[in-house]
Nucleic acid binder design. Structure first.
Length: 575
RNA sequence: GCUCUCGUAGCUCAAUGGCAGAGCACGGGUUUUGUAAACCCGGGGUUGAGGGUUCAAAUCCCUCCGAGAGCUCCA
Protein backbone atom coordinates (compact mmCIF):
# COMPACT_ATOMS: atom_id res chain seq x y z
CA UNK A 1 0.00 0.00 0.00
CA UNK A 2 1.41 3.39 -1.00
CA UNK A 3 2.34 5.86 1.65
CA UNK A 4 0.66 9.24 1.93
CA UNK A 5 3.26 11.96 1.62
CA UNK A 6 1.82 14.72 3.77
CA UNK A 7 4.05 17.33 2.21
CA UNK A 8 2.66 16.73 -1.27
CA UNK A 9 -0.48 18.76 -1.98
CA UNK A 10 -1.78 16.09 -4.37
CA UNK A 11 -1.43 13.44 -1.67
CA UNK A 12 -3.26 15.56 0.85
CA UNK A 13 -5.98 16.14 -1.69
CA UNK A 14 -6.32 12.38 -2.33
CA UNK A 15 -6.54 11.73 1.39
CA UNK A 16 -9.11 14.45 2.03
CA UNK A 17 -11.20 13.65 -1.00
CA UNK A 18 -11.25 10.00 0.03
CA UNK A 19 -12.17 11.00 3.56
CA UNK A 20 -15.15 12.91 2.22
CA UNK A 21 -16.32 9.71 0.48
CA UNK A 22 -16.01 7.76 3.71
CA UNK A 23 -17.97 10.47 5.52
CA UNK A 24 -20.68 10.33 2.86
CA UNK A 25 -20.78 6.56 3.23
CA UNK A 26 -21.23 6.93 6.98
CA UNK A 27 -24.01 9.48 6.52
CA UNK A 28 -25.77 7.22 4.01
CA UNK A 29 -25.60 4.31 6.48
CA UNK A 30 -26.93 6.37 9.38
CA UNK A 31 -29.45 8.44 7.44
CA UNK A 32 -30.49 6.34 4.42
CA UNK A 33 -32.85 8.98 3.00
CA UNK A 34 -30.02 11.46 2.49
CA UNK A 35 -29.36 12.74 -1.01
CA UNK A 36 -25.76 13.30 -1.97
CA UNK A 37 -24.48 16.48 -3.59
CA UNK A 38 -20.72 16.94 -3.87
CA UNK A 39 -17.74 16.39 -1.57
CA UNK A 40 -14.40 17.84 -2.59
CA UNK A 41 -11.11 18.38 -0.81
CA UNK A 42 -10.52 22.04 0.02
CA UNK A 43 -7.51 24.08 1.01
CA UNK A 44 -7.56 22.60 4.49
CA UNK A 45 -9.65 19.45 4.78
CA UNK A 46 -12.80 18.51 2.99
CA UNK A 47 -16.56 18.78 3.03
CA UNK A 48 -19.57 16.97 1.68
CA UNK A 49 -22.95 18.55 0.92
CA UNK A 50 -26.04 16.58 1.82
CA UNK A 51 -29.71 17.11 1.23
CA UNK A 52 -31.34 15.93 4.45
CA UNK A 53 -34.77 16.37 5.91
CA UNK A 54 -33.55 17.56 9.28
CA UNK A 55 -30.34 19.60 9.60
CA UNK A 56 -27.52 17.79 11.36
CA UNK A 57 -27.00 18.56 15.03
CA UNK A 58 -23.60 18.61 16.71
CA UNK A 59 -24.47 15.26 18.34
CA UNK A 60 -25.05 13.85 14.88
CA UNK A 61 -21.52 14.83 13.94
CA UNK A 62 -20.15 12.71 16.78
CA UNK A 63 -22.24 9.80 15.64
CA UNK A 64 -21.09 10.20 12.06
CA UNK A 65 -17.49 10.55 13.14
CA UNK A 66 -17.71 7.25 15.06
CA UNK A 67 -19.17 5.52 12.04
CA UNK A 68 -16.42 6.99 9.84
CA UNK A 69 -13.84 5.49 12.17
CA UNK A 70 -15.53 2.10 11.94
CA UNK A 71 -15.51 2.22 8.16
CA UNK A 72 -11.85 3.19 8.16
CA UNK A 73 -10.98 0.17 10.30
CA UNK A 74 -12.81 -2.17 7.96
CA UNK A 75 -10.13 -1.66 5.30
CA UNK A 76 -12.41 -0.81 2.41
CA UNK A 77 -10.67 -0.44 -0.95
CA UNK A 78 -11.26 2.49 -3.32
CA UNK A 79 -12.04 0.89 -6.68
CA UNK A 80 -12.44 2.89 -9.87
CA UNK A 81 -14.57 1.83 -12.79
CA UNK A 82 -15.99 3.30 -15.97
CA UNK A 83 -19.62 2.89 -16.84
CA UNK A 84 -21.85 4.30 -19.54
CA UNK A 85 -23.89 7.33 -18.67
CA UNK A 86 -26.99 5.19 -18.94
CA UNK A 87 -25.66 2.73 -16.38
CA UNK A 88 -24.67 5.62 -14.18
CA UNK A 89 -28.19 7.03 -14.35
CA UNK A 90 -29.51 3.67 -13.22
CA UNK A 91 -26.91 3.43 -10.46
CA UNK A 92 -27.70 6.88 -9.08
CA UNK A 93 -31.44 6.59 -9.40
CA UNK A 94 -32.89 8.55 -6.50
CA UNK A 95 -29.89 10.88 -6.34
CA UNK A 96 -31.17 13.98 -8.18
CA UNK A 97 -27.96 15.97 -7.69
CA UNK A 98 -25.82 13.18 -9.11
CA UNK A 99 -28.20 12.81 -12.05
CA UNK A 100 -27.85 16.53 -12.73
CA UNK A 101 -24.08 16.15 -12.73
CA UNK A 102 -24.14 13.05 -14.94
CA UNK A 103 -26.25 14.91 -17.48
CA UNK A 104 -23.61 17.57 -17.72
CA UNK A 105 -20.69 15.18 -18.18
CA UNK A 106 -19.03 15.42 -21.59
CA UNK A 107 -18.87 12.18 -23.62
CA UNK A 108 -20.83 9.00 -23.03
CA UNK A 109 -18.96 7.58 -20.04
CA UNK A 110 -19.02 8.26 -16.33
CA UNK A 111 -16.31 7.41 -13.87
CA UNK A 112 -17.34 6.00 -10.52
CA UNK A 113 -15.58 5.00 -7.33
CA UNK A 114 -16.71 2.18 -5.09
CA UNK A 115 -15.74 1.92 -1.44
CA UNK A 116 -17.34 -1.12 0.18
CA UNK A 117 -21.03 -0.73 -0.54
CA UNK A 118 -20.73 3.02 -1.18
CA UNK A 119 -20.64 4.25 -4.74
CA UNK A 120 -19.95 7.83 -5.82
CA UNK A 121 -19.73 9.60 -9.11
CA UNK A 122 -16.12 10.70 -9.10
CA UNK A 123 -13.06 11.22 -11.26
CA UNK A 124 -10.68 10.56 -8.37
CA UNK A 125 -7.87 10.10 -7.70
CA UNK A 126 -8.23 8.39 -4.36
CA UNK A 127 -6.11 6.58 -1.84
CA UNK A 128 -6.07 2.78 -2.01
CA UNK A 129 -7.62 1.82 1.29
CA UNK A 130 -9.53 3.48 4.08
CA UNK A 131 -6.76 2.26 6.40
CA UNK A 132 -4.55 5.02 5.01
CA UNK A 133 -6.71 7.55 6.82
CA UNK A 134 -5.03 7.69 10.18
CA UNK A 135 -7.26 10.20 11.92
CA UNK A 136 -10.43 12.09 11.08
CA UNK A 137 -12.12 14.99 12.77
CA UNK A 138 -15.47 16.37 11.72
CA UNK A 139 -15.38 20.08 12.40
CA UNK A 140 -18.67 21.78 11.86
CA UNK A 141 -21.92 21.72 10.00
CA UNK A 142 -23.35 24.65 8.09
CA UNK A 143 -25.78 25.46 5.37
CA UNK A 144 -24.50 25.80 1.83
CA UNK A 145 -26.43 26.49 -1.35
CA UNK A 146 -26.42 23.85 -4.09
CA UNK A 147 -23.91 25.07 -6.67
CA UNK A 148 -23.26 28.15 -4.55
CA UNK A 149 -26.33 30.02 -5.67
CA UNK A 150 -28.75 31.47 -3.15
CA UNK A 151 -31.54 30.73 -5.61
CA UNK A 152 -30.98 27.02 -5.09
CA UNK A 153 -31.87 24.83 -2.17
CA UNK A 154 -29.75 25.09 0.92
CA UNK A 155 -27.96 21.86 1.68
CA UNK A 156 -26.22 20.72 4.83
CA UNK A 157 -22.47 20.85 4.57
CA UNK A 158 -20.23 18.94 6.94
CA UNK A 159 -16.61 20.07 7.13
CA UNK A 160 -13.87 17.75 8.26
CA UNK A 161 -10.16 17.17 8.16
CA UNK A 162 -8.05 14.03 8.17
CA UNK A 163 -4.43 13.04 8.58
CA UNK A 164 -2.22 10.05 7.87
CA UNK A 165 -1.69 9.59 11.60
CA UNK A 166 -3.14 10.61 14.93
CA UNK A 167 -0.11 12.62 16.00
CA UNK A 168 -0.64 15.06 13.15
CA UNK A 169 -4.25 15.56 14.13
CA UNK A 170 -3.15 16.35 17.66
CA UNK A 171 -0.63 18.90 16.40
CA UNK A 172 -3.24 20.47 14.17
CA UNK A 173 -5.70 20.80 17.04
CA UNK A 174 -2.99 22.37 19.17
CA UNK A 175 -2.17 24.87 16.42
CA UNK A 176 -5.80 25.81 16.13
CA UNK A 177 -6.02 26.43 19.86
CA UNK A 178 -2.96 28.66 19.64
CA UNK A 179 -4.54 30.56 16.77
CA UNK A 180 -7.74 31.00 18.76
CA UNK A 181 -5.72 32.69 21.50
CA UNK A 182 -4.93 35.53 19.13
CA UNK A 183 -8.53 36.05 18.10
CA UNK A 184 -8.92 39.82 17.93
CA UNK A 185 -12.34 39.84 19.64
CA UNK A 186 -10.87 38.02 22.63
CA UNK A 187 -7.69 40.11 22.74
CA UNK A 188 -9.63 43.31 22.15
CA UNK A 189 -11.55 42.62 25.34
CA UNK A 190 -8.58 41.43 27.38
CA UNK A 191 -6.41 44.36 26.36
CA UNK A 192 -9.29 46.86 26.61
CA UNK A 193 -8.84 48.01 23.01
CA UNK A 194 -12.42 48.08 21.74
CA UNK A 195 -15.87 46.68 22.24
CA UNK A 196 -18.96 45.98 20.19
CA UNK A 197 -22.52 46.33 21.38
CA UNK A 198 -25.94 45.07 20.46
CA UNK A 199 -27.04 48.70 20.40
CA UNK A 200 -24.98 49.28 17.26
CA UNK A 201 -24.61 46.03 15.32
CA UNK A 202 -21.59 45.99 13.06
CA UNK A 203 -20.07 49.10 14.61
CA UNK A 204 -16.98 49.41 16.76
CA UNK A 205 -16.48 51.30 20.00
CA UNK A 206 -12.79 52.01 20.24
CA UNK A 207 -11.49 52.38 23.79
CA UNK A 208 -8.69 54.64 24.98
CA UNK A 209 -5.98 52.02 24.47
CA UNK A 210 -7.32 51.12 21.06
CA UNK A 211 -7.22 54.79 20.13
CA UNK A 212 -3.53 54.92 21.01
CA UNK A 213 -2.86 52.31 18.34
CA UNK A 214 -5.28 54.02 15.97
CA UNK A 215 -3.57 57.36 16.40
CA UNK A 216 -0.14 55.83 15.91
CA UNK A 217 -1.39 54.33 12.64
CA UNK A 218 -2.88 57.66 11.58
CA UNK A 219 0.31 59.49 12.57
CA UNK A 220 2.41 57.17 10.41
CA UNK A 221 -0.14 57.54 7.61
CA UNK A 222 -0.13 61.34 7.72
CA UNK A 223 3.66 61.50 7.80
CA UNK A 224 4.07 59.18 4.83
CA UNK A 225 1.38 60.92 2.81
CA UNK A 226 2.78 64.34 3.50
CA UNK A 227 6.16 63.11 2.24
CA UNK A 228 4.48 61.59 -0.81
CA UNK A 229 2.88 64.89 -1.80
CA UNK A 230 -0.67 64.41 -0.57
CA UNK A 231 -2.93 66.98 1.03
CA UNK A 232 -5.72 66.01 3.41
CA UNK A 233 -9.37 67.05 3.43
CA UNK A 234 -12.52 66.19 5.38
CA UNK A 235 -16.02 65.94 3.89
CA UNK A 236 -19.48 65.55 5.47
CA UNK A 237 -21.12 62.22 6.29
CA UNK A 238 -24.66 63.14 5.25
CA UNK A 239 -25.25 64.41 1.73
CA UNK A 240 -28.32 65.02 -0.40
CA UNK A 241 -29.89 62.27 -2.43
CA UNK A 242 -29.33 64.26 -5.63
CA UNK A 243 -25.57 63.87 -5.26
CA UNK A 244 -25.92 60.08 -5.02
CA UNK A 245 -28.14 60.07 -8.05
CA UNK A 246 -25.49 61.92 -9.98
CA UNK A 247 -22.69 59.62 -8.80
CA UNK A 248 -24.63 56.50 -9.73
CA UNK A 249 -24.71 55.16 -6.17
CA UNK A 250 -28.47 55.61 -6.09
CA UNK A 251 -28.78 53.14 -8.94
CA UNK A 252 -25.99 50.76 -8.03
CA UNK A 253 -25.56 50.91 -4.31
CA UNK A 254 -28.89 51.86 -2.73
CA UNK A 255 -29.31 48.49 -0.98
CA UNK A 256 -26.25 49.18 1.13
CA UNK A 257 -26.97 52.77 2.05
CA UNK A 258 -28.54 54.47 5.07
CA UNK A 259 -31.07 57.22 4.43
CA UNK A 260 -32.60 60.02 6.39
CA UNK A 261 -34.93 62.95 5.84
CA UNK A 262 -34.20 66.48 6.90
CA UNK A 263 -36.61 69.38 6.27
CA UNK A 264 -38.59 67.14 3.98
CA UNK A 265 -35.62 66.36 1.77
CA UNK A 266 -33.88 63.01 1.25
CA UNK A 267 -30.33 62.56 2.40
CA UNK A 268 -27.97 59.59 2.51
CA UNK A 269 -25.11 58.71 4.83
CA UNK A 270 -22.04 58.34 2.64
CA UNK A 271 -20.95 54.80 1.78
CA UNK A 272 -17.95 56.21 -0.12
CA UNK A 273 -15.96 59.40 -0.03
CA UNK A 274 -15.48 60.16 -3.69
CA UNK A 275 -18.57 62.29 -4.42
CA UNK A 276 -17.77 64.56 -1.48
CA UNK A 277 -14.16 64.82 -2.57
CA UNK A 278 -15.26 65.69 -6.07
CA UNK A 279 -17.27 68.64 -4.76
CA UNK A 280 -14.05 69.94 -3.26
CA UNK A 281 -12.23 69.51 -6.58
CA UNK A 282 -14.96 71.44 -8.34
CA UNK A 283 -14.71 74.51 -6.12
CA UNK A 284 -12.23 76.05 -8.56
CA UNK A 285 -10.69 75.92 -11.98
CA UNK A 286 -7.68 73.65 -12.18
CA UNK A 287 -4.67 74.00 -14.45
CA UNK A 288 -2.65 71.14 -15.94
CA UNK A 289 0.20 72.63 -13.93
CA UNK A 290 -1.46 71.52 -10.66
CA UNK A 291 -1.80 67.90 -11.69
CA UNK A 292 -1.41 65.37 -10.29
CA UNK A 293 -3.55 66.43 -7.35
CA UNK A 294 -3.30 63.94 -4.50
CA UNK A 295 -6.13 64.47 -2.04
CA UNK A 296 -6.42 62.18 0.97
CA UNK A 297 -9.28 61.77 3.41
CA UNK A 298 -9.75 59.59 6.44
CA UNK A 299 -13.38 59.09 5.59
CA UNK A 300 -15.94 57.45 7.82
CA UNK A 301 -18.38 55.50 5.72
CA UNK A 302 -21.52 53.53 6.55
CA UNK A 303 -22.55 50.51 4.53
CA UNK A 304 -25.54 48.44 5.43
CA UNK A 305 -23.97 45.01 5.04
CA UNK A 306 -26.13 41.91 5.43
CA UNK A 307 -26.28 40.82 9.06
CA UNK A 308 -24.76 37.46 8.23
CA UNK A 309 -21.56 38.86 6.79
CA UNK A 310 -20.57 40.91 9.83
CA UNK A 311 -17.39 39.58 11.33
CA UNK A 312 -15.70 41.28 14.29
CA UNK A 313 -13.51 44.14 13.09
CA UNK A 314 -13.02 42.40 9.78
CA UNK A 315 -16.40 43.21 8.31
CA UNK A 316 -18.31 46.08 9.86
CA UNK A 317 -21.03 48.51 8.88
CA UNK A 318 -19.25 51.71 9.85
CA UNK A 319 -15.59 52.06 9.07
CA UNK A 320 -12.87 54.52 8.29
CA UNK A 321 -11.18 54.40 4.93
CA UNK A 322 -7.72 55.85 4.53
CA UNK A 323 -8.92 57.08 1.20
CA UNK A 324 -7.26 59.26 -1.38
CA UNK A 325 -8.24 60.45 -4.81
CA UNK A 326 -5.61 61.35 -7.32
CA UNK A 327 -6.64 63.55 -10.21
CA UNK A 328 -4.20 63.33 -13.10
CA UNK A 329 -3.79 63.25 -16.85
CA UNK A 330 -3.80 59.95 -18.73
CA UNK A 331 -0.06 60.31 -19.29
CA UNK A 332 0.51 60.54 -15.55
CA UNK A 333 -1.33 57.33 -14.69
CA UNK A 334 1.70 55.06 -14.88
CA UNK A 335 3.88 57.30 -12.78
CA UNK A 336 1.17 57.85 -10.18
CA UNK A 337 0.39 54.14 -9.88
CA UNK A 338 4.09 53.56 -9.39
CA UNK A 339 4.15 56.01 -6.53
CA UNK A 340 1.16 54.40 -4.86
CA UNK A 341 2.82 50.99 -5.19
CA UNK A 342 5.92 52.37 -3.47
CA UNK A 343 3.77 53.79 -0.70
CA UNK A 344 1.92 50.50 -0.18
CA UNK A 345 5.20 48.64 -0.05
CA UNK A 346 6.58 51.01 2.58
CA UNK A 347 3.50 50.47 4.75
CA UNK A 348 3.41 46.69 4.56
CA UNK A 349 7.15 46.40 5.17
CA UNK A 350 6.69 48.40 8.37
CA UNK A 351 4.31 45.74 9.68
CA UNK A 352 6.13 42.76 8.22
CA UNK A 353 3.25 41.66 6.03
CA UNK A 354 4.06 39.58 2.98
CA UNK A 355 1.69 40.44 0.14
CA UNK A 356 0.55 39.46 -3.31
CA UNK A 357 -0.64 41.67 -6.11
CA UNK A 358 -3.56 41.07 -8.43
CA UNK A 359 -4.56 43.03 -11.50
CA UNK A 360 -8.19 43.00 -12.55
CA UNK A 361 -9.00 43.88 -16.15
CA UNK A 362 -11.91 45.01 -18.32
CA UNK A 363 -15.21 43.34 -17.49
CA UNK A 364 -17.85 42.55 -20.11
CA UNK A 365 -20.01 45.49 -19.09
CA UNK A 366 -17.41 48.21 -19.11
CA UNK A 367 -17.73 51.91 -19.46
CA UNK A 368 -15.50 53.82 -21.87
CA UNK A 369 -13.78 52.88 -25.10
CA UNK A 370 -11.64 49.79 -25.54
CA UNK A 371 -8.64 51.96 -26.44
CA UNK A 372 -8.82 53.88 -23.21
CA UNK A 373 -9.09 50.61 -21.29
CA UNK A 374 -6.14 49.11 -23.12
CA UNK A 375 -4.07 52.14 -22.34
CA UNK A 376 -5.15 52.08 -18.72
CA UNK A 377 -4.45 48.38 -18.28
CA UNK A 378 -1.17 48.85 -20.03
CA UNK A 379 -0.27 51.66 -17.66
CA UNK A 380 -1.08 49.46 -14.66
CA UNK A 381 0.96 46.57 -16.04
CA UNK A 382 3.89 48.80 -16.91
CA UNK A 383 3.85 50.36 -13.47
CA UNK A 384 3.87 46.91 -11.87
CA UNK A 385 6.62 45.58 -14.13
CA UNK A 386 8.75 48.63 -13.56
CA UNK A 387 8.56 47.87 -9.84
CA UNK A 388 9.51 44.26 -10.65
CA UNK A 389 6.25 43.11 -9.04
CA UNK A 390 4.93 39.64 -9.62
CA UNK A 391 1.21 39.83 -10.18
CA UNK A 392 -1.73 37.63 -11.00
CA UNK A 393 -4.23 38.76 -13.61
CA UNK A 394 -7.95 38.42 -12.98
CA UNK A 395 -9.41 38.77 -16.44
CA UNK A 396 -12.68 40.67 -16.51
CA UNK A 397 -12.68 41.28 -12.76
CA UNK A 398 -12.23 45.05 -12.86
CA UNK A 399 -14.85 47.57 -11.81
CA UNK A 400 -17.16 48.76 -14.57
CA UNK A 401 -15.47 52.15 -14.51
CA UNK A 402 -11.86 51.03 -14.65
CA UNK A 403 -9.22 48.36 -13.99
CA UNK A 404 -7.73 47.89 -10.53
CA UNK A 405 -4.77 46.57 -8.61
CA UNK A 406 -5.40 44.77 -5.31
CA UNK A 407 -2.88 43.99 -2.63
CA UNK A 408 -3.48 40.90 -0.52
CA UNK A 409 -1.58 40.63 2.74
CA UNK A 410 -1.07 37.38 4.61
CA UNK A 411 -1.68 37.44 8.36
CA UNK A 412 -0.16 35.29 11.06
CA UNK A 413 -3.00 32.77 10.80
CA UNK A 414 -2.28 32.37 7.12
CA UNK A 415 -5.43 34.13 6.03
CA UNK A 416 -5.18 36.64 3.23
CA UNK A 417 -6.85 40.02 3.30
CA UNK A 418 -7.35 42.46 0.54
CA UNK A 419 -6.30 45.75 2.06
CA UNK A 420 -4.81 48.19 -0.39
CA UNK A 421 -6.44 48.73 -3.74
CA UNK A 422 -5.81 51.14 -6.57
CA UNK A 423 -8.68 51.75 -8.96
CA UNK A 424 -8.60 53.70 -12.15
CA UNK A 425 -11.80 55.60 -12.79
CA UNK A 426 -12.94 57.17 -16.04
CA UNK A 427 -16.56 57.28 -14.97
CA UNK A 428 -16.82 59.71 -12.06
CA UNK A 429 -14.94 62.52 -13.85
CA UNK A 430 -17.44 62.06 -16.69
CA UNK A 431 -20.51 62.03 -14.46
CA UNK A 432 -19.42 65.12 -12.57
CA UNK A 433 -17.96 66.90 -15.57
CA UNK A 434 -14.54 67.30 -13.99
CA UNK A 435 -12.10 69.47 -15.89
CA UNK A 436 -8.68 71.02 -15.90
CA UNK A 437 -7.37 73.56 -18.34
CA UNK A 438 -4.67 72.12 -20.60
CA UNK A 439 -1.59 73.91 -21.94
CA UNK A 440 -3.61 74.67 -25.08
CA UNK A 441 -6.08 76.63 -22.95
CA UNK A 442 -8.77 74.02 -23.68
CA UNK A 443 -10.71 72.19 -20.93
CA UNK A 444 -9.66 68.56 -20.48
CA UNK A 445 -11.04 65.68 -18.46
CA UNK A 446 -8.79 64.36 -15.70
CA UNK A 447 -8.51 60.67 -14.79
CA UNK A 448 -9.38 59.79 -11.24
CA UNK A 449 -7.52 57.26 -9.16
CA UNK A 450 -9.12 55.86 -6.00
CA UNK A 451 -6.83 54.20 -3.54
CA UNK A 452 -6.63 52.98 0.04
CA UNK A 453 -3.67 51.48 1.86
CA UNK A 454 -4.90 50.24 5.22
CA UNK A 455 -8.22 49.72 3.48
CA UNK A 456 -10.34 50.07 6.57
CA UNK A 457 -8.74 51.35 9.76
CA UNK A 458 -11.01 49.09 11.80
CA UNK A 459 -10.20 45.98 9.85
CA UNK A 460 -6.51 46.78 9.74
CA UNK A 461 -6.55 47.15 13.52
CA UNK A 462 -8.16 43.71 13.77
CA UNK A 463 -5.57 42.20 11.46
CA UNK A 464 -2.76 43.80 13.46
CA UNK A 465 -4.12 42.50 16.77
CA UNK A 466 -4.03 38.94 15.43
CA UNK A 467 -0.79 39.45 13.52
CA UNK A 468 1.05 40.53 16.65
CA UNK A 469 -1.08 38.38 18.99
CA UNK A 470 -1.70 41.58 20.97
CA UNK A 471 2.03 42.11 21.61
CA UNK A 472 2.43 45.31 19.65
CA UNK A 473 5.77 46.72 18.62
CA UNK A 474 6.77 49.68 20.75
CA UNK A 475 5.64 52.39 18.33
CA UNK A 476 2.07 51.04 18.35
CA UNK A 477 1.86 49.79 21.91
CA UNK A 478 -0.75 51.42 24.19
CA UNK A 479 1.42 50.95 27.29
CA UNK A 480 5.06 51.15 26.38
CA UNK A 481 6.32 51.10 29.96
CA UNK A 482 4.59 50.20 33.21
CA UNK A 483 6.23 51.61 36.31
CA UNK A 484 5.75 49.42 39.37
CA UNK A 485 6.44 50.79 42.82
CA UNK A 486 7.54 48.06 45.21
CA UNK A 487 5.72 49.59 48.18
CA UNK A 488 3.94 52.85 48.80
CA UNK A 489 7.20 54.26 50.16
CA UNK A 490 8.32 54.32 46.52
CA UNK A 491 5.22 55.80 44.97
CA UNK A 492 6.66 59.31 44.79
CA UNK A 493 9.79 58.12 42.97
CA UNK A 494 7.75 55.89 40.66
CA UNK A 495 5.58 58.86 39.83
CA UNK A 496 8.65 60.94 39.06
CA UNK A 497 10.00 58.23 36.75
CA UNK A 498 6.64 58.04 35.05
CA UNK A 499 6.56 61.78 34.51
CA UNK A 500 10.07 61.78 33.08
CA UNK A 501 9.25 59.01 30.65
CA UNK A 502 6.05 60.75 29.69
CA UNK A 503 7.86 64.02 29.04
CA UNK A 504 10.36 62.20 26.85
CA UNK A 505 7.43 61.03 24.72
CA UNK A 506 7.00 57.53 26.07
CA UNK A 507 3.62 56.16 27.07
CA UNK A 508 4.32 55.17 30.67
CA UNK A 509 1.77 54.12 33.26
CA UNK A 510 2.19 54.26 37.00
CA UNK A 511 1.15 51.23 39.03
CA UNK A 512 0.97 52.29 42.67
CA UNK A 513 -1.65 49.72 43.63
CA UNK A 514 -1.42 48.13 47.04
CA UNK A 515 -0.47 44.74 45.62
CA UNK A 516 2.60 42.56 45.63
CA UNK A 517 5.28 43.10 43.00
CA UNK A 518 4.56 39.65 41.59
CA UNK A 519 0.92 40.47 41.21
CA UNK A 520 1.61 43.70 39.35
CA UNK A 521 4.29 42.14 37.15
CA UNK A 522 1.90 39.38 36.16
CA UNK A 523 -0.82 41.86 35.39
CA UNK A 524 1.35 44.01 33.12
CA UNK A 525 2.86 41.00 31.48
CA UNK A 526 -0.65 39.86 30.61
CA UNK A 527 -1.43 43.34 29.34
CA UNK A 528 1.63 42.96 27.10
CA UNK A 529 3.28 46.17 28.22
CA UNK A 530 6.61 46.28 26.33
CA UNK A 531 8.68 47.15 29.39
CA UNK A 532 8.02 46.74 33.08
CA UNK A 533 10.03 49.10 35.26
CA UNK A 534 10.31 48.08 38.90
CA UNK A 535 11.45 50.72 41.38
CA UNK A 536 12.36 50.38 45.07
CA UNK A 537 15.00 51.68 47.45
CA UNK A 538 17.99 50.74 45.28
CA UNK A 539 16.58 52.39 42.15
CA UNK A 540 15.49 55.48 44.04
CA UNK A 541 19.02 55.90 45.42
CA UNK A 542 20.71 55.44 42.05
CA UNK A 543 18.16 57.24 39.89
CA UNK A 544 17.52 54.08 37.91
CA UNK A 545 14.74 51.66 37.10
CA UNK A 546 14.94 47.88 37.04
CA UNK A 547 13.95 46.86 33.52
CA UNK A 548 12.01 43.73 32.66
CA UNK A 549 11.29 43.05 28.99
CA UNK A 550 7.99 41.74 27.72
CA UNK A 551 9.54 38.33 27.07
CA UNK A 552 10.16 38.00 30.80
CA UNK A 553 13.86 38.75 30.71
CA UNK A 554 15.06 40.99 33.53
CA UNK A 555 17.71 43.33 32.13
CA UNK A 556 18.59 45.07 35.40
CA UNK A 557 19.20 48.64 36.51
CA UNK A 558 19.23 51.37 33.86
CA UNK A 559 19.34 55.14 34.32
CA UNK A 560 15.95 56.65 33.50
CA UNK A 561 17.37 59.05 30.90
CA UNK A 562 19.30 56.29 29.16
CA UNK A 563 16.26 54.06 29.00
CA UNK A 564 14.14 56.85 27.58
CA UNK A 565 16.69 57.44 24.83
CA UNK A 566 16.83 53.74 24.01
CA UNK A 567 13.06 53.46 23.84
CA UNK A 568 12.76 56.52 21.63
CA UNK A 569 15.19 54.91 19.21
CA UNK A 570 13.14 51.73 19.27
CA UNK A 571 9.95 53.70 18.61
CA UNK A 572 11.68 55.50 15.77
CA UNK A 573 12.73 52.21 14.18
CA UNK A 574 9.16 50.90 14.23
CA UNK A 575 10.54 47.46 15.11
C1' G B 1 -30.56 37.49 3.79
C1' C B 2 -30.03 31.74 4.45
C1' U B 3 -28.31 27.21 7.73
C1' C B 4 -26.55 25.58 12.41
C1' U B 5 -24.93 26.86 17.34
C1' C B 6 -24.93 30.15 21.36
C1' G B 7 -26.81 34.29 24.89
C1' U B 8 -26.63 33.15 33.16
C1' A B 9 -22.85 38.87 37.68
C1' G B 10 -18.05 43.57 34.45
C1' C B 11 -15.16 38.87 32.48
C1' U B 12 -14.63 33.29 32.12
C1' C B 13 -17.91 29.65 33.14
C1' A B 14 -21.32 26.04 36.50
C1' A B 15 -26.33 24.74 37.55
C1' U B 16 -30.60 19.98 32.02
C1' G B 17 -37.62 20.90 34.93
C1' G B 18 -37.20 21.60 41.77
C1' C B 19 -33.49 27.29 46.76
C1' A B 20 -29.33 30.94 40.58
C1' G B 21 -23.53 29.45 42.06
C1' A B 22 -17.80 29.63 41.55
C1' G B 23 -13.16 31.93 40.15
C1' C B 24 -11.31 36.48 38.50
C1' A B 25 -12.57 41.65 38.55
C1' C B 26 -14.87 45.44 41.88
C1' G B 27 -15.59 47.82 47.25
C1' G B 28 -13.78 47.74 52.58
C1' G B 29 -9.97 46.05 55.87
C1' U B 30 -5.23 43.59 57.24
C1' U B 31 -0.48 43.55 54.94
C1' U B 32 4.37 47.34 52.88
C1' U B 33 5.56 43.77 49.46
C1' G B 34 12.06 42.81 44.74
C1' U B 35 9.99 40.38 39.05
C1' A B 36 3.63 35.69 36.53
C1' A B 37 -1.74 35.52 41.49
C1' A B 38 -0.73 37.68 49.92
C1' C B 39 -4.97 37.13 53.50
C1' C B 40 -10.01 38.26 55.59
C1' C B 41 -14.84 40.40 54.76
C1' G B 42 -18.50 42.42 51.42
C1' G B 43 -21.67 44.27 47.39
C1' G B 44 -23.14 42.54 42.76
C1' G B 45 -28.69 38.82 38.81
C1' U B 46 -35.99 40.64 35.81
C1' U B 47 -30.70 34.08 33.47
C1' G B 48 -30.77 38.99 25.96
C1' A B 49 -36.39 40.77 25.31
C1' G B 50 -41.47 39.28 24.89
C1' G B 51 -45.07 35.40 24.90
C1' G B 52 -46.50 30.13 25.88
C1' U B 53 -46.46 24.96 28.34
C1' U B 54 -46.09 23.36 33.64
C1' C B 55 -47.74 22.83 40.59
C1' A B 56 -42.75 24.59 39.24
C1' A B 57 -38.71 27.22 33.58
C1' A B 58 -31.89 29.59 33.17
C1' U B 59 -33.43 24.60 31.48
C1' C B 60 -39.08 22.73 27.09
C1' C B 61 -41.96 25.48 22.78
C1' C B 62 -42.84 30.17 19.69
C1' U B 63 -41.47 35.26 18.08
C1' C B 64 -37.94 39.06 18.14
C1' C B 65 -32.87 41.12 19.22
C1' G B 66 -27.67 40.15 19.38
C1' A B 67 -23.23 37.08 18.71
C1' G B 68 -20.10 32.98 16.54
C1' A B 69 -19.06 29.49 12.48
C1' G B 70 -20.29 28.68 7.45
C1' C B 71 -23.15 29.78 2.61
C1' U B 72 -24.31 33.84 -0.60
C1' C B 73 -22.69 38.86 -1.32
C1' C B 74 -18.46 42.25 -1.13
C1' A B 75 -18.30 49.22 -4.90
Amino acid sequence: MGKIDWKKPEDRERLWHSSSHVMAAAVKQLYPGTKLAIGPAIEEGFYYDFDVEKPFKPEDLEKIEKRVEEIIKSNERFEKSEVSKKEAMELFKGEPYKIELINELPGSKASIYTTGSFVDLCKGPHIESTLQIGAVKLLRVSGAYWRGSEKNKMLQRIYGISFPDKKQLKQWVHLREEAEKRNHLKLGKELDLFSMHAEAPGCVFIHAKGMVIWNALVGFWREEHRKAGYVEIKTPAILKKTLWEQSGHWDHYKENMYFTQIDGEDFAVKPMNCPGGILVYKTKRHSYKELPLRIAELGEVHRHELSGVLNGLFRVRKFTQDDAHIYCTEEQIEQEIGKVIELVDRFYKAFGFPYQVELSTRPLKAMGSRQVWDRAEDALKKALSKKKMQFKINEGDGAFYGPKIDFHIRDSLGRTWQCATIQLDFSMPEKFGLEYIGSDDKPKRPVMLHRVIYGSMERFLGILIEHYAGAFPLWLSPVQAAVIAISDKHNAYAEKVCREMDQAGIRAELDARNETVSYKVRDWQKQKANYILVVGDREKKQGTVNVRQRNGKVVGAVKVKKLAEKLLKEIESKK
